[in-house]
């Protein structure tokens, strides 16, 4: 049980929480920073100022009410579908890997990958937006070709921690994977 702080690829703090449930079962949780109130205020102000400017020209009050709606709906959608509060990776030796991410609204999505489908867990490099980053991913076995990998499942997709954090997760995952 330890909580360590790292940064993500754009320099914001993230924290990594490793839990040792047993020798064969470990859980890693990466939590990103909460939504800052300043950011919410800034976006709201932008939308409302824009709406007010339009209102100034058109003198139509529907603009103002739609601005309120846009802000509310936008915020709800953001915390429900975009903003991920924490992502966790549960590795259970000989059974499989469970990847779950919980959104700021409380919604959770979970996927489970059986061990016999997993080829390996590796750190890979990718071009993401205008950056080249490291990411952790699960390689899935190709049923037709035992040596090849059919596809990859990227982990910690929304928090995108930096290499030092990934190496730590990678090493303890490999400890478990190598045992079974």
């Amino acid at each position: 049980m330890e909580d360590e702080s790292f940064t993500d690829i754009s320099g914001k703090p993230v924290s990594l929480d490793c839990r040792n449930h047993s020798n064969f079962c470990r859980e890693f949780t990466v939590s990103s920073a909460k939504i800052s109130i300043g950011k919410v205020l800034a976006y709201t102000c932008c939308v409302w100022l824009l709406a007010y400017a339009v209102f100034w020209v058109t003198e139509n009050t529907a603009v103002l009410s739609s601005a309120i709606l846009i802000t509310l709906v936008g915020m709800t959608l953001h915390i429900h579908f975009v903003k991920v509060d924490h992502e966790s990776l549960l590795v259970i030796g000989s059974l499989g890997i469970q990847v779950s991410s919980s959104y700021a609204s409380g919604r959770e999505t979970t996927t489970f990958i059986e061990m016999n489908k997993i080829k390996d867990i590796v750190i890979n490099e990718a071009i993401y937006m205008q950056q080249i980053i490291y990411y952790l991913c699960v390689l899935l076995k190709d049923p037709s070709d035992p040596e090849g990998a059919s596809s990859v499942v990227p982990l910690f997709q929304s928090s995108k921690p930096r290499l030092d954090c990934l190496v730590k997760v990678y090493k303890s995952c490999q400890e478990i994977l190598s045992k079974c």
């Binding site: 080829k119 390996d120 590796v122 750190i123 090493k171 490999q174």
Partner: peptide, 15 residues
């Protein structure tokens, strides 16, 4: 070495 059991298709550079 960590990957040795899993086949050498993905030589990892991090262990």
């Amino acid at each position: 070495k960590l990957n040795a059991t899993k086949g050498a298709a993905n030589p990892d550079l991090f262990g």
